[in-house]
């Protein structure tokens, strides 16, 4: 009887040990993997928000269409990401970062064509940052499922960046940089010219005072 119990216990222990060491499912993801999962998730949420904003507020079809594409593709990416994060026990933030929300708000504050210009620029920046982080995950990540997500996301984000640059190219390179409306910092050469004009006036004033002084002297 004791022999049977012993065997059963050993067998049970073996089964338990096997389960514990069976698969990566129970291993903790690296900091790099976890950081990327959270950042990619927030990036997806930010892109979905930006895509919705574009469809609502864009002046040009380019931006509206890019917006629709971003909503669809980042929703797909996020639907692949969320189960992996859950399996790995990585808690995902509920929304985009404060900075991402701030940036979208700044874009949404623009009107008309200015919205489109601002949206394209902000999206180029966001996708560059996302792609940079994803490249880093591919190089430095450990968990195979996270690496797979990063490898799958890379061409998608690259394509978005490429489309954004195409859209930006239609505006051409900057032809002017209007960077000052106050005049408070106007340089010395202008101030000298300013004094020059005032100087003539000052001379006239002095002459007038001198003339009136002479007249007063004459009257005395």
């Amino acid at each position: 009887m004791r022999h049977l119990i012993h065997t059963a216990l050993v067998t049970a222990a073996l089964v338990v040990t096997t389960v514990l060491t069976a698969g990566p499912a129970l291993a903790a993801p690296s900091d790099q993997d976890a950081t990327w999962l959270r950042a990619a998730h927030q990036g997806n949420l930010a892109e979905i928000a930006a895509g919705n904003a574009a469809q609502q507020s864009a002046t040009t079809a380019d931006v509206r269409n890019l917006g629709a594409m971003f909503v669809q593709m980042h929703t797909d990416l996020d639907n692949q990401l969320k189960p992996v994060a859950q399996q790995l026990g990585v808690a995902l933030p509920g929304g985009p970062t404060a900075q991402q929300q701030q940036q979208l708000a700044a874009v949404q504050g623009q009107r008309g064509q200015q919205f489109d210009t601002a949206w394209i620029a902000q999206q180029i920046a966001a996708h560059s940052t996302t792609l940079s982080a994803t490249q880093k995950e591919v190089q430095a990540g450990s968990d195979q499922r996270v690496l797979q997500l990063a490898r799958a996301a890379t061409p998608v984000v690259q394509q978005h960046l490429s489309e954004l640059r195409n859209a930006a190219q239609k505006y051409g390179g900057p032809r002017s940089v209007p960077a000052g409306t106050g005049g408070q910092a106007a340089d010395d050469s202008f101030r000298t010219a300013g004094w020059g004009v005032a100087g003539v006036g000052a001379l006239m004033l002095v002459a007038a005072v001198a003339m009136s002084a002479r007249r007063r002297a004459t009257l005395r």
Partner: peptide, 13 residues
Amino acid sequence: VPVGVLPSGALQL
């Protein structure tokens, strides 16, 4: 912050 070019060709600041 990231900025782009307006239809006028001006850099939007």
